[in-house]
Structure formats: structure tokens, C-alpha cells
Design a protein around this nucleic acid. Structure first.
Lengths: 212, 212
DNA sequence: TCATTTGTTGAGTGATCGTTCAAGAAACCG
DNA sequence: CGGTTTCTTGAACGATCACTCAACAAATGA
């Protein structure tokens, strides 16, 4: 069924190499020449397989989102029974993943398209939309928590969502600036101290009551 | 005393225009052509007055640091009598300044050199060093506060410095993503709820006791 | 076997990048 | 005034950018 000459390289492997390069240096600062070298193919093969640089980047972002390092936030939100456990896990996993030397530091979605020329503004807005969508997901989870009585009625889901988003984005930046897992874990712990407990629960306790 | 033909443009004004452009788009994504157009001069004049693009960028960073939008952190640390008042003011001023539409959003030092090609790595490390120096300044201020008994002995200055640094960097990013002053002020208030009060002071009070 | 389809190769496209040069213009000093 | 110094102008430099094309190679279908 497969017509024509078959591809001589593995598309997923090549995409992973491109993802890593975009993750390291960002969209604009990564040239097609560097991409083809890292992917082990010639320019014409890249364009035949992926379209153009923008399309390749979008595929790289999608691949990153499916990888463990990119999917940990969504996974924590889906798997943890309470909002508090979900955000605690998110911050601690970010502290572990962002500075991990086995891959580029920080988060691709946060860092890969912050300095972009006018002609590539589309790439910048693509990542911006992803980030703002994530904030909305945070907000929705916190709204549910408030409806469940897990956080008090006085809690502001939108403000808390932006707060945790800011912490995560700051941790990504600091990981790129050389911060260690230890330091980022301290930041995560400090950030969780503001978690709004309902009035009838022990205030500001270091451990949640029903800890496993 | 001034020999030779005088400059036909104002150096500070031209530098301010360059600063604004670097602030908006970052180092790599701002071309010399865009710079000369915004500064109202020809390339040769730019190179005669500022050296090369890297030197111009470093001068732009220095000019940003002297401007109100870039100096507010150092000013708050110098002027406020307590660490708590200093950090409260820093976060609230960041919430006001970062999304202000009269200039590019966020902080130039945080955003202007995150995606940089290999040949310009020097620019990236220059801003990284500035950021890490700021963290050390935070840490020193918190260490003093601990010595003064303003924060308990159990407080960790390095961890708190990274925590506030992360909040500020996150607020800068969110301002660039469109967050309002209102939202960022909420983030600042939420962040200050983790401030470590000494054991004999009223815990988690919204206002510090000796407020002016 | 042979036409068709698809991928690879190597060279090369125009555009833009940061930067420089030669010529002329505007100030100074003597 | 002439000589020196510094800046401006317009044109251009080589390098790199994202991207493409013509020729060849390897697979399938008939």
C-alpha cells in the first residue's frame, strides 16, 4: 500500500531531535541548518516530511506535550483526587523535571517563543494561547474545589490560578538560570504555604490532615 | 572643546528608542534595520555612536536599569525600613508596572534574551548574571531581616529569595501574556500570604502591626 | 519489465542579517 | 582662510537565513 520510495529516516526520532533543539534555544534562534544536522537529514527531506519551519515547530510542541516532561501537569490534574494534592504534585514534579540535566532546562511552552520577530508572531501567539489555556484549566479545577468545599468560598479561583501559573513560570526560568532541584523544591513548598484551607480545618499546617 | 562635526541626533533619545524595541521583541528578534529606523539614524551612525549591536544592547539594559520601570526593585529595597514592606512594595509595583500599556509589557531583564543563538550566548549570560545577582540581593536582605528578628530563625533566606524571584518572573511573563494589573495584584497579595512571621507576632494578619 | 510515485541529494534561490567603506558635510583650531 | 576631526550619507560587503529545484534512487502496481 505504501507507494513510492520509503523514507530513510524515522520521522518520530527526527521530530524528537528537533523538539530538543527548539526546547534548548527557542524557535527563532534555531536555524534550519542546525535542525537538519541534528535530525540527520537534508533540508529537502525536512520540508517534504514536515512542511516548513513553523509546521515543524508546532509538531515539536505537540510532541513535547505528549512527553513525560510536558504532560506532567495534565496528568497530575487528572489523577489526583483533590486540588491541593494536584497542585502540590505539579509544583514538586516541576522542581524535579525543570532542572533535570537529561534534557534542556525549563518548559518548552514557556520559553521557546518569547523573543520572536514580527513575521513569526503566529508562533508566539500559539504558545501564548497554550499558556492561557493552561491557566483556564487551573481555574476550572480550583472552581470545582471551591464547589466541593475543599477551599473556602472566599477563595478566588482566577487569582489562585494565576498565582500557581506564575510560580511555575518562575520555576522554569530559574531552572534555566541554573537553580537546583533542591532550591526549586523549597520554592514549591513555600508556594504551597498559601493554600487556602477552609475555616474549620487546621490553619497553615505543614502537612494536610489526610496525608497518605 | 568639542571637535569635529557634532552629532545630529540626541544620543539618549536614540538609546531610549532602542531600549524600547529590545524590550518589546528581545535581542535576537530585533534587527539593526528596525533599530536604525526607530532611532531615526543610518547604520553607520549607530555603529559610530554605540559600537556594535551587542554594545548597544548592553547600554539599553543599563538605561532600562536607570529608568523608573527598571529601578523600582532596587529603590524599594533601599527605601523601605523592613523586608516585609520592601517585598510587598516590590510585588505591588511589579503588578502596576509590568502590564502598563505606556511601554512594552514585563521586564526587559527577564524576557529580552531568552531565545538566543549560539554566537550571541554572551548576551544571554549577561542578563542571566543580572537576574542571579538580583536573587543574591534578595537573599542578603532576607538574611538581614532574620538577624534583626523580623523573620523567624527558621526562615530560609535563599529559598525565600528564589520564591519571590519566581513570583516576579512569573508576573512578568503573565503581563506579556495579557494579564491585567488587577489580576497581578491578586497574585502579589496571594504571594505575600506566605510571609514568615515570628512566633510571637499575630499569625497571618492582613496588615502588619506597625503600619503607617 | 516499465510506468508511476515518493524520497534523497547537492546545488542554488532571493532576502535579510550585522557590519563597513568611501565620499561629503559640519564643526573646531590656527 | 586651510587643516584636522568627527559625523552623515548611500551603497555595498560577505554570511547566513528559510526554502526550492532538477536529477537521481527506491519502492509499488500492472
Amino acid at each position: 500500500m505504501a507507494r513510492g520510495r520509503p523514507r530513510t529516516f524515522d520521522r518520530d526520532t527526527a521530530l524528537a531531535a528537533a523538539t530538543r533543539l527548539f526546547w534548548e534555544r527557542g524557535y527563532e534562534a534555531t536555524s534550519v541548518g542546525e535542525l537538519t544536522e541534528a535530525m540527520g537529514i537534508r533540508p529537502a527531506s525536512l520540508y517534504a516530511a514536515f512542511g516548513d519551519k513553523k509546521s515543524l515547530f508546532k509538531e515539536a510542541v505537540a510532541a513535547y506535550g505528549r512527553s513525560p516532561e510536558g504532560a506532567f501537569v495534565a496528568r497530575a490534574l487528572a489523577e489526583e483526587p483533590t486540588a491541593r494534592k494536584a497542585f502540590t504534585r505539579i509544583l514538586h514534579e516541576a522542581a524535579a523535571i525543570y532542572p533535570d540535566p537529561s534534557h534542556p532546562a525549563g518548559c518548552l511552552v514557556i520559553t521557546a517563543a518569547t523573543n520572536v520577530a514580527l513575521k513569526d508572531a503566529e508562533v508566539e501567539t500559539h504558545l501564548r494561547d497554550l499558556r492561557n489555556t493552561n491557566l483556564k484549566t487551573f481555574e476550572a479545577r480550583l472552581r470545582t474545589a471551591r464547589a466541593d468545599g475543599e477551599v473556602p468560598a472566599s477563595a478566588d479561583p482566577e487569582a489562585l490560578a494565576h498565582y500557581f501559573g506564575a510560580i511555575i513560570q518562575g520555576m522554569s526560568q530559574q531552572a534555566r538560570d541554573g537553580a537546583s532541584r533542591r532550591t526549586l523544591t523549597d520554592v514549591a513548598d513555600q508556594a504551597m504555604r498559601t493554600w487556602p484551607e477552609p475555616a474549620d480545618s487546621p490553619r497553615q499546617s505543614a502537612k494536610e490532615p489526610g496525608s497518605v
